[in-house]
Amino acid sequence: MLEATSQALRDADGVRKYRFFTSLNVELDGKAPLDILAEGNLEQVVLAAKSFRKLTRRT
């Protein structure tokens, strides 16, 4: 699950990936992606990762 999510983040550096996995996310009902992955919901996290990737590409 972590590998699939990391691939969805594509070329984000390690710091941004860490922030994504450990930060609370509005798209995930205020939970951290690691918490959602622990619940077994990979698809929801991958969608959030793609949104995160688009946002960080602009900065």
Results as ranks from 00 to 15, higher is better:
residue 12 A to N: 04
residue 37 L to C: 06
residue 38 A to G: 05
residue 13 D to H: 07
residue 31 K to S: 09
residue 5 T to H: 03
residue 5 T to Y: 02
residue 11 D to W: 12
residue 37 L to N: 06
residue 2 L to H: 15
residue 34 L to F: 08
residue 10 R to A: 13
residue 6 S to G: 05
residue 47 L to A: 12
residue 46 V to P: 03
residue 40 G to R: 02
residue 16 R to I: 10
residue 47 L to K: 12
residue 31 K to G: 01
residue 52 F to C: 04
residue 20 F to Y: 09
residue 8 A to P: 03
residue 45 V to P: 01
residue 6 S to P: 01
residue 27 E to A: 05
residue 32 A to I: 06
residue 32 A to L: 07
residue 55 L to N: 08
residue 52 F to H: 07
residue 10 R to E: 13
residue 6 S to Q: 12
residue 8 A to I: 10
residue 17 K to Q: 15
residue 5 T to W: 03
residue 36 I to P: 00
residue 57 R to C: 10
residue 31 K to M: 11
residue 35 D to M: 07
residue 25 N to E: 14
residue 44 Q to A: 13
residue 41 N to T: 06
residue 36 I to V: 15
residue 59 T to V: 10
residue 1 M to H: 11
residue 46 V to L: 07
residue 7 Q to V: 12
residue 45 V to N: 02
residue 7 Q to L: 13
residue 17 K to C: 13
residue 23 S to R: 10
residue 45 V to Y: 00
residue 33 P to F: 01
residue 20 F to V: 10
residue 19 R to S: 11
residue 36 I to W: 00
residue 33 P to T: 11
residue 36 I to M: 06
residue 49 A to N: 01
residue 41 N to Y: 04
residue 3 E to A: 14
residue 4 A to W: 04
residue 49 A to K: 00
residue 27 E to L: 11
residue 33 P to E: 08
residue 37 L to H: 03
residue 3 E to S: 14
residue 19 R to P: 02
residue 50 K to N: 08
residue 49 A to G: 03
residue 44 Q to S: 11
residue 10 R to K: 13
residue 5 T to A: 15
residue 6 S to W: 05
residue 31 K to N: 09
residue 45 V to G: 01
residue 33 P to S: 12
residue 25 N to S: 13
residue 19 R to I: 08
residue 26 V to D: 15
residue 6 S to R: 15
residue 47 L to C: 07
residue 16 R to K: 14
residue 49 A to Q: 01
residue 29 D to W: 06
residue 33 P to N: 12
residue 30 G to I: 08
residue 25 N to D: 15
residue 17 K to M: 14
residue 32 A to G: 10
residue 55 L to Y: 06
residue 41 N to I: 04
residue 47 L to N: 09
residue 5 T to V: 15
residue 17 K to A: 13
residue 48 A to V: 04
residue 29 D to E: 14
residue 28 L to M: 12
residue 51 S to T: 09
residue 48 A to C: 09
